[in-house]
């Protein structure tokens, strides 16, 4: 089994998708725990998805190309190369900052430097938890960059990972994990996108014995 080498991102098997889904599950579980500690409240995770997604459908995952989202991006190096992205819609992101900083925020106003910085740090902590569980699971070393943040249209934010995938094929491999604090009114939910290069993708599979 050890010699399956994926050359094109369209060749991913159902078994491999199952494994990626499980990685998403474990990773987001750790991320949710980190977030729960940070906020001192319960955070649930939903059943994660792993799928191959055509470029044109990618922005639909987060509410359409023009929906305003917060994207936090880290570049990955060493044994796993690529990018990790954490995406939240604007409203849950504001809810998160409110809970963390104990302040009221005008939902239509632009976020202040301090609030952006808080979001960036939250992104750093939860993606860090996700990546360290991935590293434990695969025994691969992952070096993450500092987090970069942008608030803009979903299509524009997602063009960054889509372009990376565009070098390999016409699909993006989406490992989507969603979590929620179970409170409908001030719901906090977000999505992870793990974007390994094709070589790193093969390295992950090999390290898991697939």
């Amino acid at each position: 089994m050890g010699d399956i080498v994926v050359e094109n991102i369209t060749e991913v098997s159902d078994l491999q998708l199952d494994v990626l889904r499980e990685i998403g599950n474990i990773g987001s579980g750790h991320a949710a725990t980190a977030l729960a500690k940070l906020l001192n409240q319960k955070v649930d995770i939903k059943i994660p998805k792993a799928e191959l997604c055509a470029f044109r459908d990618l922005p639909e995952v987060v509410g359409g190309a023009e929906n305003i989202v917060v994207g936090i991006l880290l570049t990955l190096s060493q044994d796993i190369n690529g990018m990790m992205m954490f995406i939240m819609e604007r409203k849950p992101a504001i809810n998160l900052v409110k809970k963390l900083m104990w302040t009221e925020i005008d939902e239509n106003a632009e976020l202040t430097e301090m609030q952006l910085s808080a979001l960036q740090e939250i992104g750093n902590i939860i993606t860090g938890a996700y990546l360290s569980s991935l590293s434990d699971l695969t025994h691969l070393t992952i070096q993450a960059s500092v987090p970069y943040i942008a608030i803009d249209m979903a299509g524009a934010i997602l063009s960054v990972p889509a372009i990376e995938f565009g070098k390999l094929g016409d699909n993006a491999l989406l490992i989507e994990a969603e979590f929620s604090d179970g409170n409908d009114e001030d719901d906090i939910n977000g999505y992870f996108l793990l974007i390994p290069t094709i070589e790193s993708y093969n390295a992950i599979m090999t390290s898991l014995g697939l």
Binding site: A65, E66, M153, G155, S159, V160
Partner: peptide
């Protein structure tokens, strides 16, 4: 061609 128009949404680095 007119009267139609053409659009693309949320261009980032593209």
């Amino acid at each position: 061609t007119p009267p139609d128009a053409i659009t693309t949404l949320g261009l980032g680095s593209c």
